[in-house]
Simulated assay, not measured.
Amino acid sequence: MPTGLDQETQQESKAIDLALLDRWQHDFPLVPHPFQVIASELGLREREVLERFQTLLANNAISRIGAILAPNTVGASTLAAVSVEKVDLDEAVRLINMEHGVNHNYERDHAVNLWFVVTATDEAELDASLARISSRLGKDVFDLRLERPFHLDLGFSIAGRPEDSLVKRRLRPANASMIEPDDREVLAALQDGLPLVFRPFHEIGRHAGRSEADVLARLERLSQAGVIRRFGVVVKHRTLGFGANAMVVFDIADEDVDAVGERLSHVPGVTLCYRRRRASGWPFNLYCMVHARSRAQAEPVIERLKRLTGLTRRDMTVLFSTRCFRQRGPLLGAKQRDSGS
């Protein structure tokens, strides 16, 4: 049975982990020894910070430390969905995940039940990737391409209240003209996350054929340009207790959708908000994501969204995720491969 001292030590250790998770989702130090900077701020040793991040990664609390890119600035991507019979679900997931560029794949509690993100080097390769998936499944796939982001940050407090969880930051337009030809090699070396070593950017440079200083300069430039939306810890929200993941979709008249999207993006508890292309059989064009610890905690946020859309809303539906089959960063290597061939 743990003593009072043991419990106090455990609580202190948990507090340190929460600080690492909360504070460093944004503004991760782009310096040669980033873990030393973090250690100094928290009053820890550099090695302890590294070991804690290694443990968080091993325990599936984080997926990586790395760059979150503005959509469709480096390569192309889309949200896709398909309706699959329950008995065929596992096979459908296997066929979808064969595709090299699929980096997210979720089951949601709706007739359109498989939702996945497909990434590619360019629009032509993205079209080809979707065609391969559709052919394997023998089904039409909804291609719901992003038209305008209102909030795409997805950094939220693990320790705070769900309604205060979103880190609200002004969404600057990405300046894609700042992307240089060799940036892709650096970002590709980062796609699995920053190596958890004392000089991680040196290691990234070694893989990308660049100096440490060059890597840091490129990441700083892309961050300033808004191509990198944030650089930091990417948490696994389910592992950390955020088990209710709701995608709330609305059918809003085209002339009203941008004003409504701007309004909904500021609602506490909304972690993403964006306008997407409609599809035949899927009339929805405005999407909000709500992450909460339970459905009961998500419902007040959803009700507020419902009230705010008011008379502009022609239809809406709520899709809670039930299973996650894949969650990783986008693949930015050389030309996407047809993994199913």
Results as ranks from 00 to 15, higher is better:
Q11V: 07
Q11A: 14
E12H: 02
A19P: 02
A19G: 02
D27G: 09
H33T: 11
P34M: 06
V37L: 03
V49G: 00
L50A: 03
E51G: 00
Q54L: 06
L56M: 10
A58I: 02
S63P: 00
A67F: 05
I68Q: 13
A76M: 07
T78E: 08
A81N: 06
V82M: 10
E91W: 10
R94S: 11
R108V: 15
L114C: 04
F116W: 03
E125H: 13
L130H: 04
R132K: 12
I133T: 04
K139N: 06
D140F: 07
V141Y: 02
L144C: 08
L146W: 04
E147L: 13
P149I: 03
F150Y: 15
H151Q: 09
P162M: 10
V167W: 07
R170D: 12
R172F: 11
A176H: 09
P181L: 10
V186I: 15
L194C: 08
E203H: 09
I204Y: 03
G209M: 11
Q224K: 15
Q224G: 09
T239S: 15
L240T: 11
N245T: 08
E255M: 06
A259N: 13
L264C: 05
S265D: 01
L272W: 11
R275P: 00
R277Q: 15
R278V: 11
G281M: 09
F284I: 01
L286Q: 09
C288Q: 05
M289A: 12
V290T: 09
T312S: 14
R314V: 06
A334W: 01
